[in-house]
Structure formats: structure tokens, C-alpha cells
Amino acid sequence: MGITADICDVHKENVVLADSIFHSFGQKTSFSGPIHTVKVLEDNVLVKKALESIPEGSVLVVDGGGSTRCALMGDNLAAIAAERNLAGVIIYGCIRDSGEINEMPVGICALGTNPFKSIKKGEGESDVPLRFANAEWKPGAWVYADEDGILLADEKLQI
């Protein structure tokens, strides 16, 4: 069993299951950690800034508004996540360079791929509660992701 199945067996009443709308990219198919958030629309400046600054072991959750018109992360930003030992990245939007990212020691969940790069205006918000995939993504809460799904909990759960 994966980590999410184990958590559901023990903590079903303490977790929320995000809608199964994400695809997995990178070599890490399972990850968990405290949430840090960014809310942007087709602009990845704050995504890069967060990848460079959030603590090791964290999960960056990006609310890209569900846009599939461009990518919010490519291989260069994925490399930052890998180098900084971030637990993972969840993007309510798209990535690009998926072939390269799939060879990297990262865990990324995104709606899909798009070869177009994002704009670079630096607009958006950081460290704010997000709502997408029928779940609330709160800074400091915990997320658990694997092949079976993505779970959210208000705190770190023991299994």
C-alpha cells in the first residue's frame, strides 16, 4: 500500500481527498510535507521565488487558476526544487519540459503539459489559503501525495 492508503486506513476522518485531476511528473511518485502556497495566473515569477526560498522538505502548492494556456514550471525550476530538496510541487496548471523533468529526482503533480512559457510580471500572492480540486490548501497544513491520490490534513499525521 502507498502512503495515502495507509493514512486513510488510520486517519480517514482527519483528511480531505483532492479531486483526481493531476498527473505525476518526475522520479518521485510519493511525497509529503508542509504546504507553502503561491497564487498566480500564467506568471511564474513568484513560483521561482518560492522554490528558491521555502524550507527544505516543503511542498510548494501553486494555484495557477487551472489555466492550461502556458506552463508555470519547466526543467530549470524543477532543478531548483531538486537541488533544494523540496518534498514536492503541486500545480493547478501546467508544466513543460516533461521529458527532462521525468528524469529528475523530483515529485510534481500538475494538470498537464504545455510548451508555452509563462509571462514574467511578478503578479500574484504568496502564503495565502487556496481553494481548488475541491480542497482547501492552507499554508502550514500537510499534504500527502502518491499514485493513489492527494490528501490534505491540518497537521502532520503519524502512520
Rank of each mutant, 00 (worst) to 15 (best):
M1A: 14
G2Q: 15
T4F: 15
D6C: 13
C8T: 14
D9R: 14
N14A: 15
N14H: 13
L17N: 09
L17E: 10
S20A: 15
F22H: 15
F22K: 13
H23W: 13
S24E: 15
S24D: 13
S24W: 12
F25I: 14
F25L: 10
F25K: 08
K28F: 13
K28H: 14
S30D: 13
F31Q: 09
F31H: 08
S32V: 09
T37D: 08
T37K: 03
V38E: 01
V38M: 03
N44G: 00
K48A: 04
K49I: 06
K49N: 02
A50W: 01
A50P: 01
L51A: 13
L51P: 10
S53Y: 06
S53V: 03
P55C: 01
S58E: 08
V62K: 00
D63N: 10
D63A: 03
G64L: 03
S67R: 05
S67D: 02
T68Y: 01
T68E: 02
R69N: 06
R69S: 11
A71K: 00
M73P: 10
M73F: 09
G74F: 14
G74D: 15
G74Q: 12
N76K: 11
N76G: 04
L77Y: 03
A78Y: 07
A78V: 10
I80W: 09
A81C: 15
A81P: 10
A81W: 10
E83I: 04
E83M: 05
N85V: 03
G88Y: 05
I90F: 06
Y92V: 00
C94A: 12
I95G: 02
D97N: 06
D97M: 00
S98E: 14
I101F: 07
E103G: 06
M104W: 13
P105T: 12
P105M: 11
V106P: 04
C109L: 11
C109Q: 12
C109K: 09
A110H: 05
A110S: 12
A110E: 04
L111W: 09
F116L: 08
K117D: 06
K117C: 04
K120W: 03
K121W: 10
G122L: 02
G122I: 00
G124V: 07
S126F: 00
V128W: 07
P129M: 03
R131N: 11
A133C: 09
A135F: 08
A135V: 08
E136Y: 01
W137I: 02
K138H: 10
G140I: 05
G140M: 08
G140P: 05
W142G: 09
Y144E: 11
Y144A: 14
Y144S: 12
Y144I: 10
A145E: 12
E147W: 10
E147I: 09
G149C: 15
L151G: 08
L152P: 02
D154V: 11
L157N: 08
L157Y: 08
Q158T: 07
Q158W: 11
Q158F: 12
I159Q: 12
